[in-house]
């Protein structure tokens, strides 16, 4: 019954799917308008018994969003792009300052503390999940 309903919803609203991930504490670090990048952080939990893979993210508020990891190498911190973020079954991935983060490039409008920004997460099976992120200090 549930499968039929989901299939029906998929037919009626392409792109619709039940949320795959439980995401909490998501926020964007505000910066002055002169800086054309922002970092986004969150805690992602995969409650399912299957692996979930995030293949891309997008938002009307930014030109592009990538997943990056800050790593220490040769006495320096460098950022590496993570092309696909894999979240194992029943596990949690943290995006925190100094580690994994969303690299959000070229905000269309200067961000303000208190803004809410909608992000679209795209998975490897073609389904999507919406996420509301708040701009914080």
């Amino acid at each position: 019954m549930m499968i039929r309903l989901t299939l029906l919803l998929l037919l009626v609203f392409p792109g619709f799917a039940l949320a795959q991930l439980e995401i909490r504490d998501s926020w964007i670090k505000n910066l002055p308008p002169s800086v054309p990048v922002r970092a986004g952080y969150m805690t992602i939990h995969n409650p399912q018994s299957k692996t979930v893979s995030i293949v891309s993210l997008s938002s009307d508020a930014f030109d592009s969003i990538e997943i990056h990891q800050t790593i220490a190498q040769d006495g320096m911190m460098r950022m590496e792009r993570i092309p696909i973020l894999i979240i194992e079954p029943d596990s949690t991935v943290q995006l925190t300052p100094g580690g994994l983060h969303l690299m959000m490039m070229n905000p269309g409008e200067p961000t303000q503390i208190g803004d809410s920004i909608e992000i679209l997460i795209l998975f490897d099976d073609g389904s999507e999940q919406k996420l509301e992120m708040w701009v914080k200090k």
Partner: peptide, 13 residues
């Protein structure tokens, strides 16, 4: 550097 999204804002904070 100011275009640094993660480490620099976190450290200045």
């Amino acid at each position: 550097y100011t275009h640094c999204p993660d480490i620099c804002p976190a450290t200045l904070q």
